[in-house]
């Protein structure tokens, strides 16, 4: 079963020509790649292009001289690719390639819509950017704490303490009350 194989095993199989292994990798990583692309570009149409380009680049790298050998998750590998493609997209469009600005503009747009999403967008917008990034990596992209530490080159303890602070800020905001479970 592909779902039981690690990213490294699937990458190895895909590099050997196993198309199904690539499909499994794509299915596993599609949603968070799109989510990161959307946060990095701030625009849904560009996010679609960026996510596509990231997977095409992965395909190309499978065949690069020396191949692509992973020891762990593909996420740490794909993340800079997505970010770079988003930068290229911003520059092509003549915008400053600042992911933080793109995300804040996106959240601002969502914040004027009706419903609970708008409240969440406003709360996220209000978090310090360092805390916001951690919340998104952990709870939207599904990174483990150690992966976050590796990705952001931060000590694990710093990641934990910032995440605690971020969650305390989230929980303490009355706008997210409707999302809190009784035991939460």
């Amino acid at each position: 079963m592909d779902s039981e194989r690690t990213d490294a095993e699937l990458v190895r199989a895909a590099a050997a020509g196993d198309e199904g292994a690539f499909d499994a990798l794509y299915a596993r990583h599609r949603d968070w790649v799109f989510a990161l692309a959307l946060r990095s570009t701030g625009r849904r149409d560009e996010a679609l292009d960026v996510a596509q380009e990231a997977f095409v680049e992965l395909l190309e790298r499978l065949d690069s001289p020396g191949g692509l050998v992973l020891t762990g998750s593909l996420r740490a590998y794909l993340r800079p690719i997505v970010r770079h493609r988003a930068i290229d997209a911003a520059r092509r469009a003549g915008r400053e390639p600042r992911a933080e600005t793109a995300l804040e503009e996106l959240l601002d747009r969502v914040a004027v819509e009706a419903g609970g999403a708008a409240d969440l967008a406003r709360v996220l917008r209000g978090l310090p950017s360092e805390q916001r990034e951690l919340v998104l990596l952990r709870f939207v992209d599904g990174f483990e704490l150690a992966e976050i530490a590796e990705t952001l080159a931060l000590p694990l303890g710093t990641v934990k303490s910032r995440l605690h602070q971020a969650l305390a800020n989230l929980r303490g905001d009355p706008r997210v009350a409707r999302f809190l479970d009784p035991e939460g």
């Binding site: 993340r79 930068i87 400053e96 390639p97």
Partner: peptide, 15 residues
């Protein structure tokens, strides 16, 4: 090298 990111927040935060 597999990737380049920006620096500290501010003028050079973008890659």
């Amino acid at each position: 090298l597999v990737g380049v990111e920006g620096g500290d927040a501010g003028a050079f935060a973008a890659p």
